[in-house]
């Protein structure tokens, strides 16, 4: 983020912080009003249970606080002094919501740029704006969310959890790729609409009568659209986007299939892998039998 962007984003950051702070205050006051055994539990340990509250509840709360503290230490943010879980929320939430927030800013930036162009009289096609927004979303996804989905998993269910995360990740990537492809596919249509508009203006300028009926408009539009498609489909941009979409689809279907196989292991249903192995054996066996049959026939002759 450059200086200018930082300055632009300042009011939004302040807004977020104040919202988080307000909501935290609300929870803080709500927590202090809780009745025993939860009541008396002050956000500040040590003050809890003064009025005969449950000791075990206080212990649990204390333990929870320690876990929170440990978690914060894990994310390289050591908390000094006494730990106050609820009052520490703003900082934690700010960090956790950072990807969402930066994404929102990126979107807003793209939108404002589009608006500026419209105000300056530079009409930008909807397809172009949509393409930029999609690109921005994909960039943000790559920078922020993707890392979360790729965090190392631990323990007995590590493999399963990894496959769930991968399926989500690949699904998002495929949707992004498909959206980009569909947007490219819509550009010739939009261009053709604009060409119809320009043609009518042109006819009017020349003092000629505009096209007489809707059929003539349609014919002109479809012809232009066909021409635009023929141009688009030979561009490297189209081929690359198509290739990327197919690749994303491939990646998604592979991980989805693995996830389904995990699920199906617990069901009395053979998986694709089982069936493919079986079919491969069948294929090789049949091939061998056919070859032998041919050999026998040739000996008989």
């Amino acid at each position: 983020m450059n200086k200018e962007e930082k300055e632009k984003s300042m009011p939004q950051d302040a807004l977020l912080e104040s919202w988080i702070s307000a909501s935290t205050d609300f929870w803080k006051s709500t927590a202090s009003m809780w009745p025993a055994p939860f009541g008396g539990i002050s956000p500040v340990p040590g003050e809890a249970g003064k009025e005969g509250g449950d000791k075990s509840a206080e212990d649990s709360w204390k333990m929870l606080s320690e876990i929170w503290q440990a978690l914060f230490n894990l994310i390289n943010k050591p908390v000094t002094g006494e730990f106050h879980p609820v009052s520490s929320l703003p900082e934690w939430m700010l960090k956790a919501s950072q990807p969402l927030w930066s994404g929102h800013l990126l979107f807003q930036k793209q939108w404002m740029e589009g608006e500026e162009k419209v105000s300056a009289g530079e009409l930008e096609g909807f397809a172009n704006v949509a393409q930029k927004m999609t690109k921005a979303w994909l960039e943000m996804y790559e920078k922020e969310f993707r890392q979360i989905l790729n965090m190392p998993q631990l323990g007995l269910t590590r493999g399963y959890q990894e496959r769930v995360n991968q399926t989500i990740e690949k699904f998002i990537q495929f949707q992004g790729g498909l959206t980009e492809f569909m947007q490219i596919l819509l550009t010739p249509m939009e261009k053709a609409y604009n060409q119809v508009g320009a043609e009518i203006k042109n006819l009017e300028k020349q003092g000629k009568e505009a096209l007489k009926d809707s059929k003539a408009y349609y014919q002109f539009w479809i012809k232009k659209m066909e021409e635009n498609y023929m141009v688009l489909m030979r561009t490297p941009e189209y081929t690359v986007t198509l290739g990327n979409t197919v690749k994303a689809l491939h990646d998604f279907r592979i991980v989805r299939s693995q996830l389904f196989m995990d699920i199906m292991q617990d069901l009395p249903i053979p998986t694709n892998k089982d069936m493919d192995e079986l079919y491969k054996d069948l294929y090789l066996l049949k091939k061998r039998v056919k070859e032998l049959e041919k050999k026998v026939k040739s000996y008989e002759r």
Partner: peptide, 26 residues
């Protein structure tokens, strides 16, 4: 600024309005 924008949009929609009018008139 607003007027300019509206002018642009109106220009953009012109052909479609016209096509629609012709179609419905027909």
């Amino acid at each position: 600024m607003k007027d300019e924008k509206q002018g642009n949009l109106s220009d953009m929609m012109g052909p479609f309005k016209m096509a629609g009018n012709l179609m419905f008139a027909g």
